[in-house]
Nucleic acid binder design. Structure first.
Lengths: 284, 284
DNA sequence: TCGCTGTGATACCCGTGGAGTATCACGGGG
DNA sequence: CCCCGTGATACTCCACGGGTATCACAGCGA
């Protein structure tokens, strides 16, 4: 009735991506006729037309588009499930936590110190955390709202903090006790650095293109740029850096994030002790 | 390598639930030997021991427990994908929105009026919305934070409102211009009604057990109970009801909710116009 | 001690159905 | 008009999912 075997989903996604049965079959490493039949069978089973075969071309129907979206996330989730199972077997009672290199250093240390079980920490670049969660290489991630996209994940807020401007120590603004966003954005000689978007491209602008915090740190120390980061970034500042509080920047919340629908025992446990740790830290 | 056919997942979940191959095979409608072989094959493919067969009994390994959690949500998601595809085919360009009967009446009307496409509204009881989203019978739901559990979903906040106390008009408290939670909870002759928990049971207490707003409305009108609801509930009040603002109750946020990982074109469109509508309504 | 029962694993056979090859139907372009 | 390229169809084949019979082994009672 409504079984949707993963093989069928894989076939369908490939055809929907290629919009061409022969090429799709080629990519799948099978012949074209079995692929045609598999898709027909899938359509018959669902009672739905997924593709319009219009001589000289295949097009997705409305329903086909829906199934394409669904199937992609299903296949990703399936592969992630396999990987998580294998990880659970090879490293029992261990968790893998993904976080951006350099960010949240103190908070991360608190969490690791508080938790009894072994945690493998993976430091990754911009946006890699989401990918690692999605494909099952990590169980949980430490991210920052509103910087990181949380769609598709469940999360729990840990701690909220102010943002600060990180400036070259010699710069005139570095002497001020506090700044506003307008102060920072108005300075012509310190264009704010640009991070890559989700797709890896940079949006146009005057600032330098950067990929990680070490690049950023060096560029700031050289007096080429400034940055707006959360207050805990103070932990990795160089002597050539100065942090100045920003009065009107939106606050940043550190969040614990995990794939929705896969809150395993170990993850639930970790989230629980993490919340307890943070609460008690805030109370003190 | 890491394919995980849905048939295998179905088999594994059944065995993991029964912890007994013969009974599981029975439930699945197949014989026991093929089931044993299927599980062995799954274990070999993953390179992971999922079950400890310990003479007189089967037990889940650590990895098995992980896969059980994953497989359950995968199978649910698979069935949901099938259903959503079928709905997309039978009612193209239509969306199904699930909401609690009676709640958010005005907001719902705004959203429906603002959106050009056809929306099927399904009014359901406590907790049914989450189930309908999860099993693919609905595309999007209108819920209320912090009342409804949002785990496993993506959401977007629409509007925040105060809570009010709904009282029988004849009651002394109904004459007061405003109330506190302590006022309401302190009254012996108006025990607050109890809603069912996630599992359908009621936690013990003095108030009557209710399932929907019509029951609640009648019980309040009879003077048997009072309720604390969001301010927009005023739209369905009877003449025998009086709403009194609560000064210290937590605010309630109406949220648009959809299954994470399945933001189809239609859902995205609806969410976008909904946000625009609400923003513009708030500005006015 | 010896069955007896109930467990999952093994051996073996069968039929379905997934996959391959060859070919068709048909529209478009030289 | 013929040929190329498309997906669909017709068949053949065999791998694998499934069934039956049986085994190996632990617990348990007489």
């Amino acid at each position: 009735m409504d079984t949707l075997e993963t093989r069928e989903l894989r076939y369908f996604v490939t055809v929907a991506e290629e919009l061409h049965f022969s090429r799709a079959a080629d990519r799948l490493g099978i012949a074209q006729p079995p692929l045609s039949r598999a898709i027909q069978q899938l359509e018959r089973r669902l009672g739905v037309t997924l593709l319009d075969r219009d001589r000289r071309g295949v097009a997705l129907t409305e329903a086909g588009q829906v199934l394409l979206d669904e199937a992609r996330t299903l296949l990703d989730a399936t592969a992630a499930a396999a990987r998580r199972t294998q990880r659970a077997a090879s490293a029992p009672n261990r968790l893998t936590l993904a976080t951006k290199a350099g960010a949240n250093h103190e908070l991360l240390r608190e969490l690791l110190d508080a938790h009894p079980a072994e945690i493998d920490v993976v430091l990754c670049g911009m946006g890699d955390q989401a990918r690692m969660l999605r494909d099952g290489r990590a169980d949980v991630a430490l991210m920052q709202r509103p910087f990181d996209a949380l769609t598709g994940f469940d999360s729990e807020d840990l701690r909220t903090e102010q943002q600060v401007a990180i400036l070259p120590s010699g710069h005139p603004l570095a002497a001020r006790p506090s700044l506003t966003m307008a102060d920072i954005l108005g300075v012509r000689d310190l264009p704010i650095a640009r991070w890559p978007e989700q797709d890896g491209t940079y949006r146009p602008g005057p600032g330098p293109e950067i990929r990680d915090l070490s690049q950023l740190a060096q560029l700031i120390a050289l007096g080429h740029t400034a940055a707006v980061l959360c207050a805990s970034s103070r932990s990795w500042l160089w002597s050539a850096h100065t942090a100045v509080p920003l009065t009107d920047a939106p606050h940043v919340t550190s969040v614990l994030v995990w794939p929705s629908g896969s809150r395993s025992r170990a993850v639930a446990e970790f989230v629980r002790t993490a919340l307890a740790t943070v609460r008690e830290g805030d109370a003190a």
